[in-house]
């Protein structure tokens, strides 16, 4: 992921935003603002207005991803997973079942693990989105990622970014989970290689290092 790509989307957004068909009830076309917690610099939405996005049109939104604000164009039907991978090049979250069953697309929304495939991008506006890329410090792995490597918590690795985010979400909520709590919190993430025992060891290892 390079800044060039992101800037490309930004300038594209400005260029294309004229196409966006946005209306708020009782008013003409205004800047699109969604949600009371929506980012600074946007028109504060009147309490009486509602946002309406037309089918098939793209509209500019801002998503807060891994500590950055990303302004980009989306269609209402686009999932957060599609936007992360295909519009922002953030490919850690994986396409698995695309039906909320496998967990390979798990990301954090306001610290809480969610399936990006079952979340509309427009529903994620105003939330803090984090992917496995966001756990990195430059080229250095985050603690949960390092523990997965150390404990061999993977075979093919496809489910791993989702497993890592589920574990990260658990440890933010509960820094000292027991084995049963780990199994429970990780139950929404399938591993077809069956590396579960090592995955649970990795979460335990990450918890130990987090405390220390």
């Amino acid at each position: 992921m390079t800044d060039d790509t992101r800037d490309g989307h930004r300038s594209g957004g400005q260029e294309l935003s004229r196409r966006a068909f946005i209306k708020t009830s009782g008013m003409g076309t205004v800047a699109f603002a969604m949600g009371p917690a929506y980012g600074a610099g946007q028109a504060a939405a009147d309490e009486e207005t509602e946002t309406r996005l037309e089918a098939g049109e793209t509209v500019p939104i801002t998503l807060h991803i891994n500590g950055r604000s990303e302004r980009l164009l989306v269609e209402p039907r686009w999932s957060l997973l599609f936007v992360l991978r295909e519009r922002l090049g953030l490919t850690a979250a994986k396409v698995g079942c695309e039906r909320g069953e496998c967990g390979s697309c798990t990301v954090l929304l306001d610290d809480v693990p969610r399936y990006a495939c079952m979340t509309l991008a427009v529903e994620a506006v105003g939330r803090r989105i984090e992917t496995a890329e966001g756990l990195m410090d430059g080229e250095t792995l985050g603690q949960v990622q390092a523990s997965f490597v150390k404990e061999d918590g993977l075979q093919c690795g496809y489910c791993t970014p989702g497993q890592v985010m589920a574990a990260e979400g658990l440890l933010r909520r509960n820094p000292s989970p027991g084995r049963d709590e780990i199994r429970h919190a990780m139950s929404g993430n399938l591993c077809r290689c069956g590396a579960y025992a090592h995955i649970f060891n990795a979460v335990e290892d990450a918890a130990r290092h987090r405390k220390g």
């Binding site: 969604m34 949600g35 939405a45 309490e47 009486e48 207005t49 509602e50 946002t51 309406r52 996005l53 037309e54 089918a55 098939g56 269609e75 209402p76 039907r77 509309l120 427009v122």
Partner: peptide
């Protein structure tokens, strides 16, 4: 999915 409009009332 097929396209749909999206409304976010208050």
């Amino acid at each position: 999915t097929t396209p749909f409009s999206y409304v976010r009332p208050r």
